[in-house]
Write a protein that binds this DNA or RNA. Structure first.
Length: 548
RNA sequence: GGCCCUAUGGUCAAGCGGUGAAGACGGAACCCUCUCAAGGUUCAAUCCCGAGUUCGAUUCUCGGUAGGGUCACCA
């Protein structure tokens, strides 16, 4: 068979360069030893999720802790799955979490010498190499229709054989020259398949950077490398792109492990040096007692917007991810609470081999801890950014008074105390802690546990003596002083010694005042709260709470 | 079903032939305390099963078992 003629017929393109030209165009990167080139290669299908962030973080850390490059490539070979604006969204979302690319699609960088970074724009490169494989007899056209392939698959399944286009099932592999040209003349659509040279009897040991030694069976599937629309499949594009973009380390999900044999064969056939591979385990969740991979469809907590809306602190999300990505990160982080996570020496050998269950409790804990490290001003800025995007009109109005909000935050956060409080877990919940400091959102439910007369006495007695210039101990002394008038113990110790002698104790007095002023039985330091809302409002609230 | 991956408390995990089997989250108790937190001090809770190798296996080997992944002109 005249393979040159066949290749020319199948791939008549005029814009293809000699293969060596591509090597010259995309030379080896000049980098220091040990530097890794990694990439994030999403398909522009929709929006980026926690799994992407998880993987991106591993890539980014690996590149940036070794002095390498982290780039963005868009795998848009499947036209059907394209969504407008997805690329910008990916970049924006990752940026929100502090992850930035050095080069790639839509990245403005002088480093962009290995593009184009959209696969659709790289068609001629792929086609040049496909053409070469056809000339070498390592690839061939296949005219089978989807229906024909379905029939074969059903037969294989019925016979409990491996499904796919292999061995004697690869009908078009042995088409004669006349048959091929006849099909072409009839205008039948065709794909180009790899003429696999592999034998599944042969097992090889493959070294995965994360999983360690893996047994791999040689590929014998004549996989499609060029689809009927002339665009390559993922497998082929991966081999070409990661070679010519000079990726040194491919980090991807473990769902790719099963197609590794195909990629190994492709790299061999193309004569390319393989990059290193590291297959990460996926994030799991328990659903109805069953452990399963987090799914974009079913799990809203996988969407990054979910975390933005809930107001999680981005660094906290990243740190949580780091704790599952690198097993010794957490310990390091606890020892170096003030050091940014980027200082941590990320190591691929510390990446886990098994899938971690997503643990919201842990995320919440990390988020609280991170937030507790902020100054009240930084907290204001963080909450305010959330309020401007997701808050109510009332929230926005409240946040206009920065000084007032900061005073409240200092109280809630325990600024100046021995240890910070960790009340604010995320913006949405943090903002809700401010409601009773503003009259328009102050919605008290007066659930007093004491009788009307006691409550009224406490409220009116305190109103008489309240002085905003009192310090904390003077304030508390006044609270204590009210106790006897309602038959309560003013000293806790007295009460504990003889509880039967009293109707209640100081803490009950404080509770009544607290409910009147904040509308709730629990709050931070009451004396400070009164100071913040001011004498006038304090007295007004005390009198409004009098039981009629 | 074939092939591949994984297996230490409820969760994340350290461990890399001899340990009282770290630590963190979560849970419980107590202390502190004007409430709630925060903080402090304790406690409960783990090596999937069976063989083999070895003086000795959580650790190495082999078999089970369980969980996960994957079998497209999707990535």
């Amino acid at each position: 068979m005249d393979l040159k003629k066949l290749a020319q017929t199948l791939i008549p393109d005029t814009d293809l360069l000699p293969l060596e030209e591509y090597e010259n165009l995309y030379p080896e990167r000049d980098m220091q030893k040990g530097a890794e080139v990694t990439r994030l290669a999403p398909s522009p299908t929709g929006f980026i999720h926690l799994g992407n962030l998880y993987s991106a973080l591993a890539d980014e850390r690996l590149a940036h802790t070794t002095g390498g490059i982290f780039y963005l490539r868009i795998e848009d070979t499947d036209e059907k799955r394209k969504v407008e604006g997805a690329v910008e969204s990916v970049i924006r979302s990752l940026k929100y979490f502090g992850i930035n690319f050095d080069e790639g699609a839509e990245i403005d960088s002088p480093l962009n010498k290995y593009g184009p970074y959209y696969q659709r724009q790289r068609a001629s490169i792929y086609r040049a190499f496909v053409k070469d494989l056809i000339e070498k007899g390592l690839a061939y056209p296949c005219f089978c229709t989807a229906e024909e392939l379905d029939v074969v698959r059903e037969e294989q399944t019925a016979n409990r054989q491996i499904t796919g286009y292999w061995g004697s099932y690869a009908k078009c592999r042995n088409l004669s020259e006349e048959q091929i040209y006849q099909n072409i003349q009839q205008g039948k659509p065709f794909v180009i398949r790899l003429k696999s040279q592999g034998n599944p009897e042969n097992k090889i040991i493959f070294k995965d950077a994360i999983k360690g030694d893996i047994t791999v069976t040689e590929n014998d599937q004549d996989v499609v490398i060029l689809k009927s629309d002339g665009i390559p499949t993922y497998h082929f594009a991966h081999a070409i792109d990661d070679h010519f973009m000079r990726t040194t380390l491919v980090i991807r999900g473990e769902e790719w492990l099963s197609s590794l044999p195909i990629h190994i064969e492709l790299f061999n056939v193309l004569g390319f040096k393989r990059p290193k591979y590291g297959h990460t385990c996926s994030l799991m969740k328990v659903d109805n007692g069953v452990k399963r991979k987090l799914s974009k469809r079913k799990d809203p907590e996988l969407s990054l917007d979910y975390y933005r809306k809930a107001g999680y602190y981005p660094v906290a999300v990243v740190k949580y991810l780091m704790t599952i990505l690198n097993s010794n990160f957490e310990e390091w982080s606890n020892k170096n609470p003030q050091t940014p996570y980027t200082e941590f020496k990320y190591s691929i050998s510390k990446m886990g081999k098994s899938g971690a269950l997503f643990d919201l409790d842990k995320l919440n804990d990390i988020s609280k801890t991170e937030l507790s490290k902020l100054s009240e001003e930084e907290m204001y800025n963080f909450l305010n950014a959330w309020v401007q995007e997701f808050g109510t009109e009332q929230d926005k109005e409240h946040f206009e008074n920065k000084q007032y909000v900061c005073k409240i935050l200092a109280l809630i956060m325990g600024v100046g105390g021995k240890k910070r409080r960790k009340d604010i877990e995320r913006a949405e919940q943090g903002v809700s802690l401010l409601t009773y400091f503003f009259d328009d959102t102050f919605a008290p439910e007066y659930n007093f546990r004491h009788d009307k007369q006691t409550v009224n006495t406490v409220l009116s007695e305190f109103a008489k003596v309240y002085d905003p210039t009192d310090d904390n101990s003077a304030w508390f002394a006044k609270v204590k002083a009210i106790a006897p008038s309602v038959g309560f113990a003013s000293e806790m110790s007295e009460y504990k010694a003889n509880p039967e002698n009293f109707k209640g104790n100081v803490s009950d007095i404080a509770e009544i005042l607290r409910i009147a002023v904040t509308g709730m039985a629990n709050s931070p330091d009451l004396c400070t709260i009164m100071g913040i809302i001011g004498k006038e409002r304090t007295l007004a609230r005390l009198s409004n709470a009098i039981v009629k």
